[in-house]
């Protein structure tokens, strides 16, 4: 464990908690892409199957359970509890255009043709594109509540910190996970446009983020 990865995990946790509390307290999921949240729940489900087969550390196990519970709880809030506030017409991204290529690639490019390994690879590839329905929804509606932009900021920052973690691990322990690194770079690139708007609009105190 290193500071970059720990900070990254904390940013990830903060992002997930920000979103959950925003929906729970406002009793509304307006402007939130339910599709992205379902994809994230799928990412955690396919990645954390090793919860039952390999023990890494208490921290690792606890965080996996927390991420799984919060991810499914968020999906529950969107599609069941506050479904009347869900903008399904704005959440129109065709997720099959993500799932099919990601599933195909995870069979082609992986470390081993074994079920758990292919599912892990699927989760890595899927995570890099899982936010696209949410970003697409914001471009479609032309705006995002500031709390949603803070959620996206921490979510984007988490994987950027993981990039630093992989540089650190490469230089200190020769660790290099090519699949995770390439996907992490792609994932972080998708946030660049958002980061630009976030720093120029939201942090200027304009509250809402309205797209040009």
């Amino acid at each position: 464990m290193n500071i970059f990865r720990l900070l990254g995990d904390m940013c990830h946790l903060v992002a997930i908690i920000i979103l959950f509390l925003k929906i729970w307290r406002s009793k509304s999921c307006a402007g939130i892409s339910g599709k992205s949240q379902v994809l994230f729940a799928l990412v955690f489900t396919t990645r954390y199957l090793d919860l039952f087969t390999s023990f890494i550390s208490v921290y690792n196990t606890v965080m996996k359970v927390v991420f799984l519970v919060l991810a499914y709880a968020t999906v529950y809030l969107i599609y069941l509890r506050f479904r009347s506030t869900y903008n399904s017409e704005s959440d129109s991204f065709r997720v099959e255009f993500l799932l099919v290529p990601v599933a195909g690639l995870s069979f082609l490019e992986n470390y081993a043709f074994a079920p758990l390994e292919i599912l892990w690879t699927f989760s890595i590839y899927l995570e890099s594109v899982a936010i696209l329905p949410q970003l697409f929804m914001i471009t479609k509606t032309g705006e995002a509540e500031s709390i949603t932009t803070h959620y996206l900021f921490f979510l984007g920052l988490y994987r950027a910190l993981y990039l630093a973690n992989w540089v650190w691990r490469y230089h200190t322990e020769g660790f290099f996970d090519q699949i995770a690194v390439v996907s992490g770079v792609v994932q972080t690139i998708f946030y660049c446009d958002f980061f630009y708007l976030y720093f120029t609009k939201v942090l200027r105190g304009s509250g809402k983020m309205t797209l040009p």
Binding site: R5, D9, H12, R47, D50, S54, I56, N60, M63, K64, F67, Y111, A112, A114, E117, W120, Y162, N165, D177, A180
Partner: peptide
Amino acid sequence: SVQLPRHDEL
């Protein structure tokens, strides 16, 4: 056999 990288990250 190919040593699988232990996925020790979240």
